[in-house]
Nucleic acid binder design. Structure first.
Lengths: 224, 224
DNA sequence: TCAGTATCTAAGCGCTTGCTCACCCGACGG
DNA sequence: CCGTCGGGTGAGCAAGCGCTTAGATACTGA
């Protein structure tokens, strides 16, 4: 397979948003206790699911009493909403950035997949909550999140459409393939295990290659 | 509710096990009330998740009082276990059959994916429970199910390995690609919507094509 | 005819849930 | 030196949970 050497600089074709640096993106939540609660909630939701997680458990992990949770968040659902929103915005930013880069469609698609997958692997707990606990959101919050997801889908679809138009891709069913690509990437959050054989970087590389095959792009161009 | 019509015949290249006929496979559960409970539980678990589903809800959907549930199943978890077991056995049978067929690896892989995906689309409620509610199983039940999943993975891996050995496939990372193929198929249960544009057959066909591309098989052989 | 069995229900037990309330505490400006 | 205020607590409420029990009903074979 392709050498995964790629020194750090590797991507960040555009960094207009300045989002590229952030690791887990809870850093800008204040006060400190509110941030600890979000982190605790992500862990708990990812481990046991939203409904199986108790507010006592979340508060406990954050090192405070059950009642303290309600100083910072009105309900347990609001915590989920916060997590879901931040996660979806991050996904969308990632994919939009890749779509808008000045590069051939194949490169942009590979970059999008590589980063999207890497994020889902690296922050697979967050990813799990973001991708699999939507159903627990209140109706209005759910609608808002679904709109963000649609925009993410559009970003991928755009790249594939442009690749087809440029004659770089061979894709009989663009919207079906878009769905499959996104689905493939998202599911990484479900199975990824940080103690497994593969690093997030390796999975990203593997998946970028697989997706290029799916769209019938000529074999991976040598990367600088 | 689920039209279980499904004209059966369509493919079935091998039908040694005789399992090919079953549609939704709850038909052989007796007595009738126990079957109704399983069907109700599948619907409820798929809609809201295991933990958000109450025994009162399940019993209600099955048209009986909450207490009646416990005549047929010892606990709510046993219901989940039953569903999970039947579903995983069905998946495994599907994949094993495809693996053992007398045909080139590409055909066997395409058949495996086509049927696996079709099943996850057609019975996406069951699929949802089977694939996404494992975590709610008791420890011993969980271990048993995980063993079944490993055997399913082995079936796919075998086909890919044999395709590589025969020179039909070009796969740099066999076990990674196996994971990706399974992941892609499984995730159909999450997003498939019976009121959407695509039928289960169409999704199966699309995915079989995509997977052949992923393993670098020469373009799809004409099917009879 | 009638005990035995299988199936079901109304009522409810003990416990946990999400969330609230009355109160406490240390930092800090005047 | 005190009042205020953001952040915290212990206790607990109403509701809902999984599950049990005592008893009703219908069907069976002898």
């Amino acid at each position: 397979m392709s050498a995964q050497a790629h020194a750090s600089g590797e991507d960040s074709p555009t960094n207009g948003t300045g989002s590229a640096l952030s690791g887990e993106s809870w850093n800008d939540i204040t006060p400190d206790a509110a941030r600890r609660l979000v982190v605790a909630a992500v862990e708990a939701f990812a481990e046991r699911g939203y409904h199986a997680t108790t507010t006592r458990d979340i508060a406990g992990r954050a090192g405070m009493s059950p009642a303290a949770l309600y100083i910072h968040y009105k309900t347990k659902e609001e915590l989920l909403y916060q997590i879901s929103k931040v996660g979806h915005l991050r996904s969308l930013a990632l994919l939009s950035e890749a779509r808008d880069a000045a590069a051939p469609a194949a490169d942009r698609l590979a970059t999008a997949v590589r980063r999207f997958v890497r994020w889902h692997a690296e922050y697979h707990t967050t990813g799990r909550v973001v991708q699999y606990e939507l159903g627990a959101l209140a109706a209005d919050h759910y609608a808002e999140i679904v709109a963000l997801r649609r925009r993410s889908e559009d970003a991928i679809r755009s790249i594939i459409e442009e690749g087809v138009a440029a004659g770089d891709f061979d894709v009989p069913d663009v919207s079906g393939t878009t769905l499959a690509v996104l689905s493939l990437c998202i599911d990484v959050a479900r199975w990824f295990n940080p103690r497994g054989r593969r690093t997030p970087d390796e999975v990203g590389e593997l998946y970028a290659d697989l997706v290029l095959r799916m769209v019938g792009a000529p074999r991976q161009p040598a990367r600088p």
